[in-house]
């Protein structure tokens, strides 16, 4: 494979990328218990994909996460954030229905300081992380496409448009 960077970079990236991804999942999942949350976790997850993209080249990276799938992921995550927020408006409990009502916690109150607590706060964190991952990754791929368009011509972008 001629794409990507040198063998040293590829090997180190192969070793490190799993740990970065795991750390992003950890930061996202414990966002309601400690420092972290959807924004930081999502950017760390996007960092792992950007590392693959830089080290291995675009063709290998699109087999891991294609940007056409990532843009659908971003839309679904943003819609699910809105749906979780409107859940408290639609199903009212006890006569007071309002936007961002923590409905899940009222029905399933977990133990405080445990992973399953906080109602829909972990779910909102998860939606936020997927949105940030997808949008940062898509923006990076597309801006790289523009730069390549200026330097290498139409071959790069037409391959982006037509699909693999």
């Amino acid at each position: 494979m001629k794409e990507g960077m040198s063998l040293i970079v590829k090997t180190v990236a192969r070793w490190v990328v799993g740990f970065i991804f795991l750390y992003g999942i950890y930061i996202t999942a414990e966002g309601h218990l400690g420092p972290g949350g959807g924004f930081s976790g999502g950017i760390i997850l996007a960092c792992s994909y950007i590392l693959i993209l830089i080290a291995y080249g675009r063709r290998f990276a699109s087999r891991n996460l294609d940007w056409r799938i990532a843009r659908i992921m971003a839309g679904v995550a943003a819609l699910s954030f809105l749906a979780l927020a409107m859940l408290g408006m639609i199903f009212e409990t006890g006569g007071n229905a309002h936007f961002f009502d923590n409905l899940i916690r009222k029905n399933l109150p977990g133990t405080a300081f445990h992973l399953f607590s906080g109602g829909n706060i972990p779910l909102l964190n998860l939606a936020l992380a997927i949105l940030v991952l997808a949008s940062v990754f898509t923006a990076f791929v597309l801006l790289a496409a523009v730069r390549f368009w200026e330097t290498r011509g139409k071959k790069f972008f037409s391959s982006l448009e037509d699909g693999p």
Partner: peptide, 25 residues
């Protein structure tokens, strides 16, 4: 009130959830 031990997450995603929705937008 929210069940989240991290008060920053409680403010961001429960008390001030509308602001986070704006950030998502």
């Amino acid at each position: 009130l929210t069940g989240a031990a991290n008060s920053v997450a409680a403010v961001l995603l429960d008390f001030r959830g509308l602001d986070s929705l704006g950030e998502v937008a």
